[in-house]
Design a protein around this nucleic acid. Sequence first.
DNA 1: AATGAATGAGCATTCATTCAT
DNA 2: TATGAATGAATGCTCATTCAT
Lengths: 214, 214, 214, 214
Amino acid sequence: MARSGVREPATTGEERPGGRPPMGKDEPVRRRLLAEATRLFAEKGFESTSVQEIVAAAGVTKGAMYHYFGSKDDLLREIYARVLRMQIERLVRFADAPGPIPDRVHAAAVDVIVTTVDNLDDSKIFFRSMHQLAPENQKAVRAERRRYHERFRDLLVEGQRAGVFRDDVPADLVVDFFFGSVHHLGTWYHTDGRLSGTEVGRHFADLLLASLRP
Amino acid sequence: MARSGVREPATTGEERPGGRPPMGKDEPVRRRLLAEATRLFAEKGFESTSVQEIVAAAGVTKGAMYHYFGSKDDLLREIYARVLRMQIERLVRFADAPGPIPDRVHAAAVDVIVTTVDNLDDSKIFFRSMHQLAPENQKAVRAERRRYHERFRDLLVEGQRAGVFRDDVPADLVVDFFFGSVHHLGTWYHTDGRLSGTEVGRHFADLLLASLRP
Amino acid sequence: MARSGVREPATTGEERPGGRPPMGKDEPVRRRLLAEATRLFAEKGFESTSVQEIVAAAGVTKGAMYHYFGSKDDLLREIYARVLRMQIERLVRFADAPGPIPDRVHAAAVDVIVTTVDNLDDSKIFFRSMHQLAPENQKAVRAERRRYHERFRDLLVEGQRAGVFRDDVPADLVVDFFFGSVHHLGTWYHTDGRLSGTEVGRHFADLLLASLRP
Amino acid sequence: MARSGVREPATTGEERPGGRPPMGKDEPVRRRLLAEATRLFAEKGFESTSVQEIVAAAGVTKGAMYHYFGSKDDLLREIYARVLRMQIERLVRFADAPGPIPDRVHAAAVDVIVTTVDNLDDSKIFFRSMHQLAPENQKAVRAERRRYHERFRDLLVEGQRAGVFRDDVPADLVVDFFFGSVHHLGTWYHTDGRLSGTEVGRHFADLLLASLRP
DNA sequence: AATGAATGAGCATTCATTCAT
DNA sequence: TATGAATGAATGCTCATTCAT
């Protein structure tokens, strides 16, 4: 159910000034399939969602789906690719910004949480369904994910070297510590809860920064 | 269908007075089924593991499995029950121990991580397969999980009231922050990695305590 | 349709004295599946026959079929195995018999034709569907078939050495020449035609022997 | 559905007066489609070859194929038509030639083998895929094939009447005997084998003639 | 002449579960 | 206790064909 979530909030914004195109003819089938698949995978899991359900939700036939995607797996892969693309792009923007390290870490931390909350379905899928990807794709996703972690870790190492962060905890471990909290959002956060994404983001970022004080 | 099924034959006592004594080996078939199911669910996911694979791994036939468990779902439920039972029991022990709050929190934090690492398969299953449980079981698991979180939160609140923990972050949120890190262990921790469970536990507990400094 | 053909005529004979067992309960499902599959594959080809058609004809469900056979391919493989087993066994019997070479060749030639005509469905399937077998099975079938040819060729070579057969034509080629005629029976022979299997067998064997006169 | 479709655009003349001249290259696309279809049908069978594979091999799109051929079946029919046209034409040439009957039979026999070996793919398809043709086409092919056989049989009968061939074997049966060997070539002959098509042809023709000696 | 998105019916196969024994 | 044959519904996917352009 839950037609839910903002999906491409910060990056794409409006598609066409003036809102929805008249017929649903300009919003391509491919887009709709990906959107419904994301929603359903998040709701019921990859394996428990049938291709039939996806195409019915998207209002097309199976043949159409297999015209755009090679397999159900392919659909999942696209979802991962989209998430990874967005995440790394945003992190790089924050990490490469000017300013003191702690500020940059804080900003990046807030942003990843806000983004995660804004795309909660993606987040629910990410760690729950990784093992459903074909081994090769799984490897690719892990590699991309590692790049992401390394970029964040480098920021922490930079801070440790500069003496603004404690260095008695391996930076890698801090990354796993913090991103565990981020990935877990999909399990407990509800859009209609007490705290907004930004509020959670600020609190988590505060906790992270506090935990790093030398 | 058959919602039924004998579930804990060895613990609930004899079904047939005069039948097999419940002493023997605590139902080795049942045990083996649960062990193999855990291993396989962790490795390939609940939906991707067939009953046939489980019984083959346990060296029995399907009939035997359906003798001990009402359904595949039932197997999963038992796994959750076992994990929850153990977790709450250990937390209570640490939380109710004497000594300063920060020490108790630290000890409980280390323990939950060590325990998680020691039962990594359980951890992998926990958040990945929750949505496969029948709604009623899911609700029960969530309720039990909440009790666990609340017990931990109460400890933090106690610390906040005592002034040893900062109170500008909601204790609930700190619990989600920390347990996110714990649950994520199943995703990245490898038994053969550089750090032992205890080492990770200490580092994570240190980070938690540091983040709570007033 | 054509419920047709004698199926295991010369080899097995009656299964139980007294004819058909009462309920179709003693004629196992496996047997019935194989019989219907043979009939249908001969009639419409392997690829054009659906598993659904086979199980419907056999009066069972798909699940039952997959209980006995690993796949549709497996069904085909069994058919090939059965044919090959019977053919080699009969040839050996004739080839190893006492008596003059030409008589043995003639008898074996008549027999293979009679047997082919009695199991025309098998024959129709044999060369038409070989390429549908998995490569490994195809290789095995070809190897077995080669053994058969070699046994027949050895008989001819023996005759050539003894001077009773011409030797200006390679014996291998004669085998291909003659068995081409045999395999082609499935294409043109009709059980209700003018000539019985034995008559065709005698004529073909006569032609073969005549062609081999030194 | 659409039983229709343009089928022989290049031969039946222009569809649109004033359009493309039918001279060019005799419709290279059509030619290429037929060539690739023949190759693929021989290699993997008609049913196991998808239209997609054919058009990919020919370097065109599906739409192009459906422009030239009404259906996949239509492609197969064209292949049969081409083979039959060639075979009957060649046989007639040899059968109507001057000279003694045995020489004409021998020459025709050699020729059909050489031709078969030169077009081995056609031969592989011929008997393996006949049952895939629509019943009406199948009937037409069989009728044409019968005409071919009858022409050859008449030659044999002529020889029998003239006393140069034995007449204790029905001429029809001799035709089936010999053409069995010919059709079987597709199963065992390899272009890179020891014997050339002409050599096989000569041996087979010799065997045939020998078998017919009165 | 040719494209390529889309259809819809059909396919082989899997699987949790039942039940007579 | 435990077996294993059998079920029946569902699943992912393929494919020849159509049609607007």
